[in-house]
Design a protein around this nucleic acid. Sequence first.
DNA 1: CTGAAAGCGCTTACAG
DNA 2: CTGAAAGCGCTTACAG
Lengths: 336, 336
Amino acid sequence: MTATLHDVARAAGVSIKTVSNVINNYPHVRDATRERVEAAIDELQYRPNQAARTLRSGRTDMIGLIVPDLRNPYFAELADDVMRAARAHGFSVLIEQFDADRDSELAALRGARRRGLDGVLYSVLSLGEDDAPLLDEVGMPMVLLGERIFHSAHDHVTMRNTEAAHAATAHLLAAGRRRVLALGSHPGEVVGSAGLRLRGYEGALADAGLEVDPALVVPVDRWHRVDGADAMRAALDAGLSFDGVVAFNDSLALGAMRVMLERGIRIPEEVALVGFDDLDETRYSLPALTTIDPGRSEIARVAVDLLVERITGDAVAEPREVLADFRLVERESTAG
Amino acid sequence: MTATLHDVARAAGVSIKTVSNVINNYPHVRDATRERVEAAIDELQYRPNQAARTLRSGRTDMIGLIVPDLRNPYFAELADDVMRAARAHGFSVLIEQFDADRDSELAALRGARRRGLDGVLYSVLSLGEDDAPLLDEVGMPMVLLGERIFHSAHDHVTMRNTEAAHAATAHLLAAGRRRVLALGSHPGEVVGSAGLRLRGYEGALADAGLEVDPALVVPVDRWHRVDGADAMRAALDAGLSFDGVVAFNDSLALGAMRVMLERGIRIPEEVALVGFDDLDETRYSLPALTTIDPGRSEIARVAVDLLVERITGDAVAEPREVLADFRLVERESTAG
DNA sequence: CTGAAAGCGCTTACAG
DNA sequence: CTGAAAGCGCTTACAG
């Protein structure tokens, strides 16, 4: 039914090798031959069979993006960035979501492998440093995003968590805030985003000569909007008093903002609020949210570049670690 | 390097056909043989080569999802729903984004074809009824989402746009609102979401014995948050007076909400506001947004089911059209 | 500059 | 219940 290389070769009166040469833009094809082949391709509406190409070449021109879930706007925006960066290299992106447990995360990795992708970008969530050996079994080029598993044999692109949290906290302190709540800690965590951001928060307090009040470090397990709302409600119900909030991501910040506003707390007059991620929507909340732009687009672009280099390159370079630049975006929630 | 069927066959002392039988769960394999083969598979860490399978069987077990862009939360949530539904059938999802022009949309369709996917879900945006012939050239099972191109030869899953917009408008009218602004029209459009929703708006006014005031029908080209904010700002600057707003999607509604609140307009006391889509975040705005739940998860599930049926089924059924049920979700933005 | 041929790793009639 | 063999549609040395 669909035309093959042989059909085109027959129609053009050449061998399949010549047709293949034309399709793959080999330089040494006589113009007349090329034209004849191209005419035959047009007429027969020939399209190369991807599966056959892949079987021969071992390349699928597809990479996987393994992320928690796209309902989380951060990952949706990241996916958009990754798809655009991949397209610039001629790659398509297969997204695999996983749930909040190790098994689901490992299943997503296995799925990427089963599909025979050329490589994967993997946004680590549950897996920790002890799981590094499992990553080596994936058996394809892989670039890690996010935190954890620092000492694996893989490239790693991430943001300056600690420095950025330090900057966000210092911004509140510089405006005279003295009781700054940290929203989103994961007690006991060291290498994850929560641990690193907490360290930045603590560092900024120390630099200002302030003690960390443990009551102001509020743990929140998952970082969705509902979790930020719930945690803030509990904090207010418990009578906690504070004049600033550093939320460890924007979803937490927006959930907390909603609860504070409905309790009549004025932002930023009574409580100044900073988030993390610079989601599109943070420009449209009221007040608009001051936040950290973590350099997500740059992270996506660099990660795709590294992965493509691993896929196409012959040189086996050392694993690299890239830290994107961040930026404090000042908006209404900390104004004045 | 990687083990093949032949390696496993040799190790187990059987033919490759028998190994294939074991892998594909053919019933008639002796237990002892099966165990021997499975042991060899484990030992050699054999994984079937997807490309070879696809070349033989013609199946990739991948479907495409062609959508405008994932930065739009509606499509991010849709993508999540589609991926979960596809996984239940053993399919992975390749997402192709397109920009706001016909060429980009056609390129995405061609890309899906080039990849040799088993089928595509296509959320139509720019293409219209005249383009139906182009869709037939895609040459693979396809299910349409969204509006436009009603009379193509393809299955189509969508929501009850007109009825839902009617219900949203009637909800405001029942609360005594008399000057209801429609936000997001596309002048001249008939078969698209904007045209259908406008018809519902007009119908509800007519049922209440009210005239449509053309000044209250506000066109907005793209339906992102920034567009809703801009349009609302312009409407207020022009001195337009109204006591209700039906926004044609939630992003428009949230953008408009932000502008009204910063102008000191009280919602819902002075202006009641309804959106469309039931995005996750509409529960966390202040006020929480009354909206239409368009049955997005159901749409995703039904669309995937239909597509899988087209892919695996032999019976060539007539194109079907499925309309999901909608629901008005009442929240604070229209309370009291 | 072009051709004949091998082979990528499977699945699937066809035998027995 | 299992085997021998063809063939899916390409790419790629190898010749000439």
